[in-house]
Design a protein around this nucleic acid. Structure first.
Length: 433
RNA sequence: GGCCCUAUCGUCUAGCGGCUAGGACGUAUCCUUCUCAAGGAUAAAACCAGAGUUCGAUUCUCUGUAGGGUCACCA
């Protein structure tokens, strides 16, 4: 597909929350579409909501985009909060031409604000021509709205405080945006924005509304309902690879029409077809993500994988083990001697569980059962051992955990293994008997 | 509730009037294997409903139903 005129798209997130996976997909689709058409993708921060916009979210979005390999030329990013003059110009123009007017609404004002051009309690409303707006959506075809129900909606809180619709339209116009690819939740905003476009004399861009990314219950993935599962960074933290995430996201609502499931970014840029995008919402299916990710892991160079896995290795556990083993080491390589039981179930004969002069496994069994019950209460176990004979209790306890004649004491080993694993091993020993 | 969007296996989807309705994830079984995972094979699993149009509808039209989105001085 070769465009006669240069295609200009944009990705305008609002830094009012962590980078959302649905938003990441929107960015990806914009990127793929723009790249394959040799166009330009603009990055704009919609931070007109001063209360909710945060620097940390801004960073989260930018880092997420970079992580995915979506390069948006961040040094050229635009902030709406720094463009008040531009919006003011349009507000003025619309008022002058009778397309907007100032209205009194003091009763709706939640908190007093400084004078900003309008008098306190005043707001700027769009003069709705109350007509039908029909637009063509690249994905859905023709959509028609009657704008009457929109009433005279607010376009600015004051001359210096535009509201979303005005800012978006003004920016897209100023920046020469030709294609708007965004989430389906914006469909109902479109007629309002077209009305503003017509009022300021801006050309209408091509629209493409993407189906939503849904939660397993088919509702829109939202921070409120679904917590961290909406955040791209959550998946990054869990160790999903960016290539796999891109691959997965691309397949949510789009497919090549072939049996191919694994796509690199380059392949996606080549194969992507905005017309083949699905109309219905798609559930974010973690099982499929897992599978795709596993495919990338299997293909990855082991050396590289080792590097990536390092942060997930149990540093704390290893540290504890070293702390204990250093008392027994002569040289560094000794660290690897006889510590397998820290990582896996030990193997040993059940007779090993018998303490020196003891010859009754049934008694040992009772001791182990008691210890299993008391796990977590070190003092209680000690008291019990004191009563029954230390060796009678502690030796099988330790053997159950390590399978070794020599090792650190069972309490230390139990602590490193964790309660769950400790109990599991005790039960194993009991079963052996 | 108004307006708008949507509707093929549990999930992601192919299909663009005539197909045994295909693939992938997941699930089950079998093979391989010391175990697990991987891999291989097989299986179960879908056209929301009802009217039209048509020789013929999953496919086109309408209605219903269901789900979703949106109804801010948030974006």
């Amino acid at each position: 597909m070769v465009a006669k005129e240069k295609i200009i798209t944009r990705f305008p997130p609002s830094p009012t929350g962590p980078f959302h996976v649905g938003n990441a997909r929107t960015a990806l689709f914009n990127y793929l579409f723009t790249k394959q058409n040799g166009g330009k993708l603009l990055f704009r921060l919609e931070d007109t909501d001063k209360e909710r916009s945060k620097k940390e979210y801004e960073d989260d979005i930018i880092n997420g985009l970079k992580w995915l390999g979506i390069d948006l030329n961040f040094s050229n990013m635009v902030r709406q909060s720094e463009r008040a003059e531009i919006y003011k110009k349009y507000i003025q123009k619309m008022i002058n031409e009778g397309n907007a007017y100032m209205a009194e609404e003091a009763h709706l004002r939640s908190s007093p604000r400084p004078e900003l051009g309008t008098k306190a309690g005043q707001v700027i409303r769009f003069k709705n021509p109350n007509k039908k707006i029909k637009f063509n959506d690249l994905i859905r075809g023709e959509i028609e709205f009657d704008t009457t129900e929109l009433k005279d909606f607010v376009i600015a809180k004051s001359f210096d405080e535009p509201v979303y619709h005005l800012a978006v339209v003004a920016d897209d116009f100023e920046m020469g945006v030709t294609h708007i690819i965004r989430g389906e939740d914006h469909i109902s905003n479109t007629p309002r924005q077209i009305l503003i476009q017509e009022a300021i004399g801006a050309p209408r861009p091509v629209y493409a509304h993407l189906p939503l990314v849904l939660a397993p219950d088919r509702s829109k993935l939202s921070k409120r309902k679904h917590g961290e599962h909406v955040s791209l960074s959550y998946y990054k933290k869990l160790g999903y690879l960016p290539e796999a995430m891109v691959n997965f996201l691309a397949l949510l609502g789009w497919n090549s029409g072939t049996d191919q499931e694994i796509f690199s970014m380059e392949e996606l840029i080549k194969e992507f077809d905005i017309k083949k995008i699905q109309k219905a919402g798609a559930i974010f299916n973690i099982e499929k993500l897992n599978w795709i990710n596993s495919q990338y892991i299997k293909k990855m160079d082991t050396e590289k994988l080792m590097e990536l896995c390092a942060p997930y290795l149990e540093k704390e556990k290893i540290k504890k083990i070293i702390g204990i083993q250093k008392e027994r080491m002569n040289k560094l390589s000794d660290i690897s001697e006889d510590i397998d039981y820290f990582f896996e179930q030990p193997e040993y004969e059940k007779e090993k569980l018998l303490w020196k002069n003891e010859d009754n496994l049934n008694k040992t069994k009772i001791h182990l059962q008691k210890v299993a019950e008391l796990i977590g209460d070190k003092k209680a176990i000690r008291d019990y051992a004191e009563k029954e004979g230390r060796g009678n209790v502690l030796w099988p306890f330790r053997m159950a955990l390590t399978g070794e004649d020599k090792s650190p004491d069972p309490f230390i080993v139990a602590e490193i293994l964790g309660k769950e694993e400790t109990i599991k091993r005790l039960k194993n020993a009991i079963k052996k008997i």
